[in-house]
Amino acid sequence: MAFQAHLQQAGLLRKVVDSMKDLCKDVNFDCSEKGLQVQAMDSSHVALVSLMLRESAFSDFKCDRPTSLGMNVDSLGKILKMCGPNDSLKLQAKQDADVVSFQCESGDDDRIADFDLKLMQIESEHMEIPEQQYKVIVKLPSSEFQKICRDLKEFGETMQVKASKEGITFSVQGDIGAGNVMLKPRESDKPEEKVSLTVHEPVTATFALRYLVNFAKAAPLCGVVELGLGPDAPLLVKYDLEEAGNGHMQFYLAPKIDE
């Protein structure tokens, strides 16, 4: 086997795939001894999805040589739907194979489902994501970020994000009017209820809301979402995969530059 991995909770991979299926059609899962990585642009080249699922997230992980597994995200989602949230999942691919096999086992080992998914040759250029020094880093509950994006999407297509030491304001102007939601920093013992801002300088930037709504669908991955903002820089939306040691899912979105 060139690659084999065992994930105790199939639900983790399912949430990952659900959060990218509206953005990317076909992606390469790059396997190395570090884990599984994905870097993919959406079809309009406005958004970038970057996944790092570390080998430490798996109970067993073996990759003899770096290999790329090209998969259709929708088909992968269909396979993972068959796994219950507590099922474990084994992934295997032989060297130069044209399929990757999935084996789903229920917690009591009384139900085992097997699938082979045909691999695809996907042309993809590897993008180096430059290390950004963000002027503003905001951490907020991912459920709250999801609600703000969904609510404001009803009013317009573009969202302005304005961050300063006082807090972060999400604003939309549309045909029926304008709306703002402001979140001020707040303390809580639970990280998933806290809002914190690190502000080196205030930033205001504008983004297409439909992408943010898609990014916010990754909320089930982690109770906290991190936003990175800089002047004229892509927005970073980052989720840990349940916990930081498992890796992360990052989305980048190019700002809308006023014509």
Results as ranks from 00 to 15, higher is better:
99 V>L: 12
106 S>P: 10
175 D>S: 12
196 S>D: 12
148 I>W: 00
177 G>K: 03
53 L>P: 13
80 L>H: 10
44 S>G: 12
225 V>E: 03
111 R>Y: 06
181 V>P: 05
181 V>Y: 10
61 F>N: 13
135 K>D: 11
31 C>V: 15
125 E>R: 10
119 L>R: 04
46 V>C: 05
233 A>T: 07
8 Q>K: 14
243 E>R: 09
231 P>R: 03
245 G>R: 08
82 M>I: 14
20 M>W: 01
91 L>P: 11
202 P>D: 11
71 M>G: 01
60 D>W: 07
53 L>Y: 09
130 P>S: 07
250 Q>F: 00
213 V>N: 01
238 K>Y: 01
61 F>E: 14
238 K>D: 04
114 D>I: 12
102 F>E: 11
257 I>G: 03
214 N>W: 00
236 L>D: 02
130 P>Q: 08
214 N>G: 10
252 Y>D: 00
121 Q>M: 03
188 S>F: 05
102 F>T: 13
148 I>F: 01
79 I>T: 13
251 F>S: 03
16 V>W: 09
221 L>F: 08
1 M>D: 11
104 C>F: 08
4 Q>A: 10
234 P>A: 03
66 P>L: 11
173 Q>V: 08
82 M>V: 14
12 L>K: 08
234 P>C: 04
45 H>E: 07
84 G>W: 11
92 Q>S: 15
61 F>V: 13
122 I>K: 04
88 S>A: 14
196 S>P: 04
255 P>N: 09
75 S>R: 03
149 C>M: 09
16 V>F: 07
70 G>K: 01
22 D>F: 02
56 S>I: 13
32 S>F: 04
149 C>W: 02
202 P>M: 06
